[in-house]
Design a protein around this nucleic acid. Structure first.
Lengths: 144, 144
DNA sequence: TTAAATGCAAACGCTTTGCAATTGA
DNA sequence: TCAATTGCAAAGCGTTTGCATTTAA
């Protein structure tokens, strides 16, 4: 069932603005920020307002249809959950993001569950560090 | 060697303001935000300014003496590295933070290094999810 | 003595909010 | 019809910046 249908079924109005936000979320091949969604919506409907975008995203988050993730910069990004789960290796140096499968973290999640009773949120996790390329650059600088 | 000594040795001025920021960082038993540091500094020296706190934190970060970590709320927190490394299980529901040893993440880090050439930043990582207590509450709500 | 550091005030960028006008069901 | 939703404008919040003044070395 689509996000739009779910909204209507739960008694929320399916406004054009909400539809456009949902479509922008689904059209994105990568995680998308509120401002990027707003830009897409505004291109189709110039009177659209960014506060509506934020309010729609809040609603979708509340309903569990969308997850929010921080990639280390200050703007938060969004992703529809029906796209499947995966995680992200975020390079602190070049900001490149590599996606990794959900399974890469299941052993960790199981371990933390066993040890601490903590249920790791396995929807979208960002792991920060240095990518291979930036590691090599860092080594070169150290050698000089 | 203390942060203060290191600063001076690298040619930076050891001002009272910088000393107070460093002391606030070390006095905190948990990770501390810029505003919390500012509050402590201001209590001792009322003319202190929060921009000086931010500038000092930037410097300490640059020198690798302090790490920055986001616990999911919008304000970033800080921790002196000489306190040792560890990680955090942050409950998205009650915001409680449980510290776990660095070793809890080494298998994951080794795996990601092997598979993707990615060097996980093992200084301070925040892992989001649900604590045991909030899991039970969530279950109870579902049963009703 | 003087470059580095501070205090101040203003700006910044993202996000939220109050309120009157609009609109989906 | 009428509560839910929107657009607008303004504020909120943590953080950053430009600049004149002060200060550690």
């Amino acid at each position: 069932m689509s996000c739009g249908q779910i909204l209507r079924e739960l008694g929320y109005r399916l406004t054009p603005q909400r539809m456009m936000v949902v479509e922008a979320l689904h059209s994105a091949d990568k995680h998308i920020s509120a401002e990027e969604i707003y830009a897409q919506v505004q291109a189709r409907y110039p009177y659209a307002n960014i506060s509506t975008v934020y309010r729609t995203l809040d609603l979708l988050k509340e309903l569990g249809l969308v997850v929010e993730i921080s990639m280390g910069d200050d703007r938060v990004r969004f992703h529809p959950v029906d796209r499947g789960h995966h995680h992200h290796l975020v390079c602190r140096s070049c900001r490149k993001v590599v996606d990794i499968p959900e399974t890469a973290l299941t052993p960790l999640a199981e371990g933390l569950g066993r040890e601490y009773g903590f249920k790791v949120e396995l929807q979208h996790m960002a792991i920060f560090g240095l990518c291979a390329q930036c590691q090599r650059q860092a080594e070169r600088r150290t050698e000089d």
